[in-house]
Nucleic acid binder design. Sequence first.
DNA 1: AACAAAAATGTGCTCGAACACACTAAAATA
DNA 2: TATTTTAGTGTGTTCGAGCACATTTTTGTT
Lengths: 346, 346
Amino acid sequence: MDKKYTIKDIAKMAGVSKGTVDRVLHNRGKVSPTALEKINEVLNVINYEPNLIARNLKNTKVYRICVLMPDPEIDPYWYPCVNGIQDAITEFKAYSVIIETYFFNPESTKSFLTTNEKIIEKSPDAVLIAPLFHKETIEIIKQYDELEIIVNTFNNQVESSSIKSFVGQDLYKSGRVAASLMNLILDQGQIAIIHIDESVKNAVHMQEKEKGFRNYFEEKNLSDFSLTTLKLKYSNIDTKLPVFLEEHPDLKGIFITTSKAYQIASFLSSLKDRKIALIGYDLIEKNVNFLNQGLVHFLIHQNQKRQAYLGVSTLVDHFLFRKEIPETILLPIDIINVENASFYVS
Amino acid sequence: MDKKYTIKDIAKMAGVSKGTVDRVLHNRGKVSPTALEKINEVLNVINYEPNLIARNLKNTKVYRICVLMPDPEIDPYWYPCVNGIQDAITEFKAYSVIIETYFFNPESTKSFLTTNEKIIEKSPDAVLIAPLFHKETIEIIKQYDELEIIVNTFNNQVESSSIKSFVGQDLYKSGRVAASLMNLILDQGQIAIIHIDESVKNAVHMQEKEKGFRNYFEEKNLSDFSLTTLKLKYSNIDTKLPVFLEEHPDLKGIFITTSKAYQIASFLSSLKDRKIALIGYDLIEKNVNFLNQGLVHFLIHQNQKRQAYLGVSTLVDHFLFRKEIPETILLPIDIINVENASFYVS
DNA sequence: AACAAAAATGTGCTCGAACACACTAAAATA
DNA sequence: TATTTTAGTGTGTTCGAGCACATTTTTGTT
């Protein structure tokens, strides 16, 4: 029961050499029926687990994993991912794995493509990509496929048979979660779905969330509510938002589909007379501040840090420990309010 | 940058033998100042990380970790823990670690003590205990301390300098989270805090949650609410609960401090005329069913599975990879409603 | 029966860290 | 000066899996 058996043990028990046992274990053939039976008999009795440590020692190959993601200096949404990858680097630094991060400008498809070429030059064994640009992603995935480089994705889902794995969240469902919370805060009134983003790259993201949000209200037949959509950019919040608020005097709640809830909260904090419920995404510092002030009611945690970490660690587990790469990992949709926020920020 | 250096590499670079490098790396002395300097020079330039795989291969010691926890057959609350431990067993089966689980009867301190003796007989290297019984735990911890067996705890917190680690949740805060949600569902009215448990062993648990729950309402000066506490057992729900409901006609919400929310929900489902908000703990099947039916509004996820998994895995990491055992791991207080529940059950 | 070909089996080396042990050279003692 | 002590250094083995290669056994062919 207790003992960890080795190939040598099995060989001795079956009365053969370890070479023969090895051939049986790996189906390498060249084994007589007699030997096969003897070894299988032993294998049926004991529970042999190859020692992963010894197996890996022999493998001197250094695996290279490249991560391609937006520059967090340009969009701070991505900072947690860097931490997640750093965690993975720390955890696996003692193994024969090299993990490298490459940033691209999230506003520029060209930057995405050129940074990508840099990675290809390094001829990695696998890449983890945040595939912000759908069309361009499909292109580069073809290249990786030809070079037999494994492609994992995170944060944004892109359908392709060449992609081994996706780590992310069910955005539609997260919209529903936001809706269910909004429905709890409010009895009736107008609700705005606000998309704040500098570019169109997140369009699919935001739309999925909106769909989920709207679907919840439709499904429940909540006719006391009316939903409106508003698209904003950072540069025009101060002009467009006041107009919108004036046009919608009965506005009771706002669902912000990006991590920019703080921009709305910041504006609303100057309005003393209106009480508007805010639900947004992501535990970035500014959002958490407004959560603590009571201006933001709920945040939905997308856990980018863990997304990035898992994206890398599944690859490492695959290379080092021959674990299967799960096709999709959907992280839970964490509901955050002022009371439990502290346990999630890290 | 890329290359993973080995002791042999360092030896060659410094012009010494690997034995000398080894002595420097482990401060084993018997090294001349000249050699020391040469080696340190090399070490300063390159970034040496000992290969954990090779290091562990040499170590033939089989570590034994024993888990002491209540029998889930008696209290199903503990089933997820078994799964968490099973996960750990699966993950580490290829390493020189033996993980064994021992169940005790959660209603019997004697069972706790005798099962514990069985573990001591096995002379493990570490134990993970769910220390349900405070006094008895303090006693047995002394024994472990003398035998130099590492003690980790989970689920229940016991203060002792001999305990290396605790994995659990901040119960007080989880009570506050429940309160904040209740406050969102209700505007005013009576709220009951119900403790359902067969024995007194969970008293501290339940009290902490109640404290947090009450503290929230006090702190916010929510005078439109009145809080009442009720203690129940499974055997007297059907008699005591109807009486209680009759005595409290304005009861609008119930906070159940244990995982037995389904018992209340089950009873309330027969009452058509009263709408009472329910908040409870734990994603056990029966609770999730009532969540889906809309009878339970929120569940707080204590994530026992992960508690148990982490309790074991930190020990394995300690033995195998010399990682430090974190003193306390507080898991996040996950807020679950019908929309996000599916992502947490496993 | 003699030999070649093929099949089956066993041997031995590698990976990197760790440590026991053997060895050399310099310092201390007789 | 001869001999012991000790500080310093290097060598060699171990761990278990994996695989190349050597060796043995069996089968097939003339």
